[in-house]
C-alpha cells in the first residue's frame, strides 16, 4: 500500500524491538562492543527524537526484571569503584575498564559518571581521557545524559550571588568543553 504508512509502521516496529528487547538485552551481555555497534547501526537510522525517547524509557521497567536490576546495580557500584581509583598513572588500564563497563550498561555507567563529574571537578581530565574508548552508541547516550542533567529541575543554575554559575553547571560545562576539544 502506501509507502509512507509502511515506513511509519516499520519505524514503530523497530522502536518496539529496540525498547522492549534489544536495549535491555545489551545490559545482560558481557561487555561486547560489537553488539553495541550493531545496535547503533540500527538506531542511527532513527531521528534523534526517537533515539532520545528510547533512552528516556530505557531502564524504567528494570524493576520488573530482577536480572536487569542486578546488572544495573553491579554496573553502578563497579563504576564508582573504578572512578575512585582513576588517576594519571593508571589512566590507560582503568580507562579501558570504564569503557568495558559502559559497553554493557551505557545508560547506568554514563549517568553515574556525569553525576560524579558535577561534584568532583578533578575527575574531568581523567574521565575525558578514558572516554576515548567509548563507541558511537555510547557517545550518543552521553549527549543525551548531559542534556538530561541540564534539563533536570530543582537546582539552581546560578550561585546565590546571582552572577556566577553553580558549581555543578560549571563542572558540566568544563567537562563538555574538554570532551569536544
Amino acid at each position: 500500500g502506501n509507502p509512507h504508512l509502511h515506513l511509519k509502521e516499520a519505524r514503530l516496529r523497530v522502536e518496539d524491538a529496540l525498547g522492549a528487547c534489544l536495549l535491555p538485552s545489551l545490559q545482560l551481555v558481557p561487555a561486547n562492543p560489537a553488539v553495541g555497534q550493531e545496535i547503533w547501526e540500527l538506531m542511527s537510522l532513527l531521528p534523534y527524537e526517537a533515539r532520545y525517547h528510547l533512552y528516556g524509557e530505557w531502564e524504567k521497567d528494570d524493576d520488573r526484571y530482577p536480572m536487569l536490576l542486578a546488572a544495573r546495580q553491579t554496573a553502578k557500584l563497579d563504576t564508582r569503584r573504578i572512578l575512585k581509583r582513576l588517576a594519571k598513572e593508571n589512566l590507560k588500564q582503568l580507562g579501558r575498564m570504564v569503557a568495558k563497563l559502559a559497553h554493557a550498561n551505557p545508560m547506568t555507567v554514563l549517568r553515574t559518571i556525569v553525576h560524579q563529574i558535577e561534584a568532583y571537578r578533578d575527575m574531568i581530565t581523567p574521565v575525558v581521557d578514558a572516554f576515548k574508548y567509548l563507541t558511537q552508541l555510547e557517545y550518543d547516550i552521553l549527549e543525551y545524559v548531559v542534556i538530561e542533567r541540564l534539563a533536570l529541575g530543582g537546582r539552581d543554575k546560578l550561585k546565590d550571588d546571582g552572577l556566577n554559575l553553580s558549581d555543578w553547571l560549571q563542572s558540566l560545562a568544563s567537562f563538555w568543553g574538554h570532551l569536544k576539544q
Binding site: 509507502p3 509512507h4 509502511h6 515506513l7 509502521e9 516499520a10 519505524r11 516496529r13 523497530v14 524491538a17 528487547c21 534489544l22 538485552s25 545489551l26 551481555v29 560489537a34 553488539v35 550493531e38 545496535i39 547501526e41 540500527l42 537510522l45
Partner: peptide, 21 residues
C-alpha cells in the same frame, strides 16, 4: 543472535525508507 536481529531489522527499515524516497 542479537547482532543478527539488529541486521535484519536494519535491512527491513532501510527497505521501507527506500520505498519512500
Amino acid at each position: 543472535l542479537l547482532q543478527k536481529v539488529c541486521r535484519v531489522l536494519r535491512g527491513y527499515y532501510l527497505s521501507a525508507l527506500e520505498l519512500v524516497s
